[in-house]
Every structure is written in structure tokens, then in C-alpha cells.
Amino acid sequence: MAVTLSESAAKHVANFIARRGKGYGIRLGVRTSGCSGMAYKLEFVDATEDEDVVFESHGVKVIVDPKSLPYIDGTELDFVREGLNEGFKFNNPNVKDSCGCGESFNV
């Protein structure tokens, strides 16, 4: 399994990194918090940690820490537009239920 980006997400990430002027890739992860137990983490990466798992998807480096990986393995990150709002969305096959806002989930 792996963690991947949709083509649109990859394009946007690459674009954001270019405009930010620096960045090795993007980190996807989870933290234990939020109303349904787990919350997603989405950050730029300037330096990786030793134990990090690095994937590559559409030319963009995707970094996941080993503790997060079981929760999000198989996830595809997508970039979507909803009305005026736009942003990234985790399509995570491991999720059993999530809170209404989609920011946190349970496996």
C-alpha cells in the first residue's frame, strides 16, 4: 500500500512549494485529538526525520511518519473546490466514521 496524491492535489502542492520558495515535500499524518479521536495533519516538509517513510506521487514527495502510516495507508489526498472554499481532502479507506466536519475520524 502507499499514500498517494491525486493529480490535482499533486499539481497544487508542487505549485505551493514553488511559490513558498522552499520545501522537500508534504507531510501527511494523524494526531490523537478532535471530536472523533484522530485528526489529520498536513504540513510542508523542510527536513525529514530518520524514521519517516517517503513516497513519491506525480513527482511530489509524500512523507509519512511510521506511527501515522497504519491509520492512513491507502489514502489518496485530493484537492477539491466547494463553492468559494478550496482545499485538500483525505480519501482514507481506513475510516469507519468521521465527525461532521471531516477534520477528525476514527478507524
Binding site: V13, F16, I26, R27, R31, S33, G34, C35, A39, Y40, K41, L42, E43, F44, V45, D46, V80, E82, N85, E86, G87, F88, K89, F90, C99, G100, C101, G102, E103, S104
Partner: peptide, 17 residues
């Protein structure tokens, strides 16, 4: 459903915050 934005390294905020 809230859409996520990329944060600076180590700056991911708590959900709903």
C-alpha cells in the same frame, strides 16, 4: 465538510481551532 490547508512544519492546528 472542512477542507484542509497545508500548514508550516509543526504548525498544524487542532481540529476546529
Amino acid at each position: 465538510m472542512a477542507l484542509l490547508q497545508i500548514a508550516e512544519p509543526g504548525m498544524s492546528t487542532e481540529p476546529h481551532r
